[in-house]
Every structure is written in structure tokens, then in C-alpha cells.
Design a protein around this nucleic acid. Structure first.
Lengths: 336, 336
DNA sequence: GATCATGTTGTTACCGATACCATGATACCG
DNA sequence: CGGTATCATGGTATCGGTAACAACATGATC
């Protein structure tokens, strides 16, 4: 059984031409019902498996939708991935993904590797890329989607939200509940462009609302995890004691920070408020539950999938889609 | 720029044959250094991107490593995925994944779709499959790996651990610390074969150690999440009050359950012990930290990647590899 | 009976990269 | 100087499915 069965084999066995086999298996209406059934039976008998590689090659259309993600180990991106997969379920598109580890150089490598598979479209998580990446994508002449961000210079379609503006909602809420001295906890600027946008947004919003200068607390290179939030608080507790709110770049970081704060005897939200980002499950379940932003990770995936499918199937025009989502503030127990 | 550049185009522009272009770009030693450089320059100038689809078609070898995962939104599988990706980084193998949603019928669809891409090997998470899936894989005559489980009837290679035996470690520990009346929290049997193995293992171990019959607490269909752990405790609190240990199918479930228990006024581990499974980050960071099992999710990925690469590159023989890992008990604060 | 529409099947060429073999050029040997 | 090894390059065929067109049979229509 080590040789593979092709349509030619089926054709020989069934006594028809390969073309008829092709038509029969594709349920092309132009083939006689009896012939189709016979071909189908022979195919089953021989254990035939369709060869998408050959079809993709011939049609010059791979059926792949390429996707880059910073990390697979992040519930937010996983949600987008899941929604994307589901909104593609009815189509013949298949996801082909590359993990960039929050690194634009690695992203470039992945884009190169993905483009070599001739995807029908490319979805990039994030709006920061190397020049070469941009060049590669432009000359690939396929639809490009940038999601999860609003890039300054979009390559093609955009489905995301402003990380900077989003922080305004959080800072507003903190200011309204009387907090004045904020600290921001996030990964280093060069490893997490998205997180850095949140940092800048927090600083800007605090300034606009007349709060004290934001204390910048950096936890090292991305990804920012529960552990990094916990360790940062342990390390910087002296400076943190002077604050009345800790704005965290994500929910896991907020949770880690909260565990450390409680361990050190501070009460939440009494002594200090804590906010997260992303509406991860932990923020709803933890005690106290964490005030956070829902950015519509699922909606991003669903919209992107639908939009990509419409463009690729020619239903909608190729005009650049710019879809700006508005994050939703979820006030919970960590901000009193 | 909408037509794609092929080796033929480069050949014409560089005044050589397509064959020479192929050799030059592949750094085949048999092409003159000066010619190679010239070809390379022309390729760069034209913005050429190699076509892996054509290469795969010609070579009858796709370079794909197909992988099925029950869920993308699970830190344990994500860890395996990451380790697998990393151990493949040096090779020319590319992961092609399908999400099964803990459903063997969906797995069959995914396997069919993945096989049509002619992968060089197939990695299945789990050891429970439909008959058709087994048949498809057998006639595909490629190396098959089943990971994360020890299947009763392996299809090919196996890299996993016994979910049933693993629970013995937890039950032992609970028994030694004086717990007698255990409850098991997990998804319904038919949606999570792996979780069900853990249920059976717990029941078996409790029986062998002379503990009370295990109370079976089912949270509905997989996946088992923090929310489902929390909701189950809220719903079943009356029966749970009679227990002195809650054995959970995973760390997130344990965390959710713990939050609910505390909310209802029970102390952990004073009133009731709680255990998790999988050594998710939450189990180390939460307060109290959660006693759990580390099953070597990373090691599974690394081993599988290395093994697949060795077999595919002909370094090692095709003999069936059966690699049984031994989970490691991590005693933390939820079991006093 | 000739003409034409319709339904079904077959033939040929092609997608892009490359294995295989052939060929020409150069170097080196006795 | 003829013969042969070595190096560099080219020509051709091929992988599996399918678009485009051709061919044929059948039945309907005038």
C-alpha cells in the first residue's frame, strides 16, 4: 500500500478517462449519475485521497490563509484564532500559521516561509514590521490583513482597535474613582509594540486628566506573564507603595501582581487598585475579580475570516477595509 | 506586479537556463560562483519568492508535519505546540494543524483535510479515534504519532503518559495527608477521553487505597475551564461539603473550584484539599498555590519533533517508538 | 432526412521546480 | 597530441489534477 492512488489509477480501474474521474469526484453536474457512483465506489475501494497539492499547483491557488501570531500561548490570540477557524469552517480555506515570538525579524522569516506556500491571503497580528516584510507583502499581490492594531501605515486591510485610546477608558475610570498616582506594568518597549502603545496611552491619558506622572515599571522582554507580574511587584514594592493604582498590560500580569501585593499585605482595592487588559477568563473568576477591557478578540477573528472569505470569493471589492473596534470597559472588584 | 515571478523569468533575465537558476538558488555546489551570484541578484531584483507548492508537487514530499490538537486555547497543548515548533526550527518541516474541539468526528474531518495536503507525517493528540480515521492513517503510509496518551491499540509511534496511572500519584499524596472522601471534577466522558482516563484512574486508585467511593462530579462537555469549575462547585456545594478533597481534571478547573469554595466560606486546605493537573502557570501563582502534576507537556513536544525529524530524514529506523513519560507530582499549598 | 441542441466523455496542454541524462568546455595525463 | 577526468550548463520529462476544447451519441425539431 505504499504507492499512492491517483485519479489515473481510478480511471484505469473504472474504465473511464482521468477527466471523468475528476468530474465525478467533484460532483460536477456534467457527469452521468451512474458513472459518478461507479467512480466513487472505485475510489473508495482503492482508498483514494484527493491531492490538494496538485490541485493547488494547477489552479495557482493554494487555499491557504496565512496567519502570523506573536504567541500561541495567549488566550487572547487563541480566541481570535478560534473565531477565525470557525468562520472559515464553511469555506475551503485552511489556516497556515507562523509564530513570531513577538519578534519582527522572526516575523519576517515566517512571512517568507508562509509566502513560499503561495497563500491566498495573509493575516498579520500587529502593525509593526521590518521594511523587508512590507516589501515582500507588497510584491506578493495578495490581500493583506493587519489585525489587533491600527498601524500608522497600513499595508492593506485593518481590523483592530487603538491600544492607546483604549487605555483612556481605564485611566478615566481610575481617575473618577479618585486614583491619582498610577503605575504601568508592561514588557519592554522593543519586544512588544502593542504593549508599548498601551504604556504610551496610559501616560498620555494620565497627563490629560491631570494625574501624577505615571510610574513606568518594566518587566523585561515579552511575553508578559503571571510570573512576570508577580516578580515585578516583589522587586519594585518600595516604589509601588507610593501608588494608588497599578495599570497592567494584560490580565495575567494583573493577576500575578495582585497575588504578590496581597502576599505583601496590601489590600485590593483598598490600598491599591489593579487593572488588567483583554478580559481573559482569570479576570472574571479571580477574587477579587479584575477590572479589565474586552477588546473583542473573538470579533476580530470572526470579522477577519468573513472579510477574507468575501474578498477571496469575489463577493466584495478589494477596497481596503478599515474596521476599528471599540474596546469595552468591564468594571470589577479590583478598582473598588 | 500582479504576475508572479518564476525561475523561468529569472532565467530569461539572467540569460541562463531555468535549471541553472534552480541550482544557483539552492546553493548547489555544481554552479559557478559568479553565475550563482548573478542569478541571486536577478532573483532579488525581480522580487522572486520560491514556490514550495511546486517543489512539493515535484518531489512528492510536502514538508508538512500535520498536527491535530483538541483545543488551541489550552496552555498545556500550547506548550507542546511551542516545543514542537522550536524543535522543528532547524529543519525544513512546517507544522500544519487542525483543531478537533475534543470531537473524534471532527478529528476525522481534520485528518482527511490534512492528509489531502500530503503531509510527511501525522501527529495526533490523543489515542481515541474513529475507525475511518484509523483506516485513513493506515493507508496513508506515513509515520503516525499519537501523543499525550498511551493508546490501547497504537497506530504507530507513541509519546505520552498514562493519565490513569498519573492520578495514582495524586491519590497517594491525598491519602497520605489523611484525606478519605474524594470527589472528581471533570468533563463528560464522551467529550474528553483523556479526562475520563483521569476519572477512572482516580476511582481505581481510591479503591485500591481503601478510601471512600469517589464522588463523580461532571461539568458537561469539554473543554473544562475555570468557569466550569466554579459553576460546578456552586451547583453541587451540598454534596461537596461531605468531601475532604476535590480532585480536578486540570489546573484551571481547580482554580475555578477554589474560588467558588472560598466564596462559600470553605477554607483550603483546612476544610477541603484541591488538586489540579498539568502544572499550568496559575497553579504556581495562585494563593494558595495548587498541588498539581507536571506531565512534561514541553518534553512531549520536543521528543516528538526530534523523533519525527529523525525518522523523516532517515537517521533512525522506522521501528515504532513507544516513549512513556512519568508525570511529576508538585505538592503545593492546596493540600496542606 | 438534415440540422441542431443537449448531455456525456475524451484529448491535450499546462501549472513551476528539478532529477536525469546529454553536451560542451577546460584541464591534465602519459 | 589524443584521450580522459572534471566542471558547468542545458534539454527534456515529470509529478496529479483540471481548463479548454473536441468529439460523439442521442433525441428533438423542422
Amino acid at each position: 500500500m505504499s504507492v499512492r492512488v491517483t485519479m489515473r489509477d481510478i480511471a484505469k480501474e473504472a474504465g473511464v478517462s482521468p477527466m471523468t474521474v475528476s468530474r465525478a469526484l467533484k460532483s460536477d453536474g456534467s457527469v452521468n449519475a451512474k458513472t459518478r457512483q461507479m467512480v466513487q465506489d472505485v475510489a473508495d475501494k482503492l482508498g483514494y485521497v484527493y491531492d490538494t497539492t496538485a490541485q493547488a499547483f494547477r489552479a495557482q491557488r493554494s487555499g491557504f490563509l496565512a496567519l502570523t501570531l506573536p504567541s500561541i500561548n495567549n488566550a487572547n490570540f487563541a480566541t481570535t484564532h478560534k473565531a477565525l477557524t470557525e468562520s472559515l469552517a464553511e469555506t475551503d480555506l485552511q489556516l497556515l500559521q507562523g509564530i513570531t515570538n513577538y519578534d519582527v525579524v522572526r516575523e519576517e522569516q515566517m512571512v517568507r516561509q508562509l509566502l513560499a506556500r503561495r497563500p491566498d491571503a495573509m493575516i498579520l497580528t500587529g502593525g509593526t514590521h521590518t521594511d523587508t516584510t512590507r516589501r515582500l507583502l507588497e510584491s506578493a499581490s495578495i490581500p493583506v490583513f493587519e489585525i489587533w492594531d491600527i498601524p500608522e501605515a497600513p499595508i492593506g486591510h485593518v481590523i483592530g482597535f487603538s491600544n492607546s485610546d483604549a487605555m483612556g477608558l481605564i485611566v478615566d475610570h481610575l481617575a473618577q474613582s479618585g486614583r491619582q498616582r498610577l503605575g504601568f506594568v508592561g514588557a519592554s518597549a522593543d519586544t512588544d509594540a502593542r504593549g508599548h502603545e498601551r504604556r504610551l496611552g496610559t501616560i498620555k491619558a494620565a497627563r490629560e486628566r491631570g494625574l501624577a506622572e505615571v510610574l513606568d515599571l518594566q518587566i523585561g522582554p515579552a511575553p508578559a506573564t503571571m510570573s512576570s507580574g508577580l516578580e515585578l511587584v516583589m522587586r519594585e514594592i518600595d516604589r509601588i507603595r507610593g501608588l494608588d493604582a497599578l495599570v497592567c498590560v494584560s490580565d495575567p500580569v494583573a493577576f500575578g501582581a495582585m497575588m504578590a501585593l496581597e502576599c505583601l499585605g496590601l489590600t485590593i482595592p483598598g490600598d491599591i487598585a489593579v487593572t488588567g487588559f483583554g478580559n481573559f477568563e482569570i479576570s472574571r473568576i479571580s477574587r477579587p475579580s479584575i477590572t479589565t477591557l474586552d477588546v473583542g478578540a473573538q470579533e476580530i477573528g470572526t470579522l477577519t475570516g468573513r472579510c477574507a472569505n468575501e474578498i477571496l470569493s469575489g463577493i466584495s471589492a478589494q477596497d481596503a477595509v478599515i474596521e476599528t473596534l471599540t474596546p469595552r470597559l468591564l468594571v470589577r472588584k479590583t478598582t473598588g
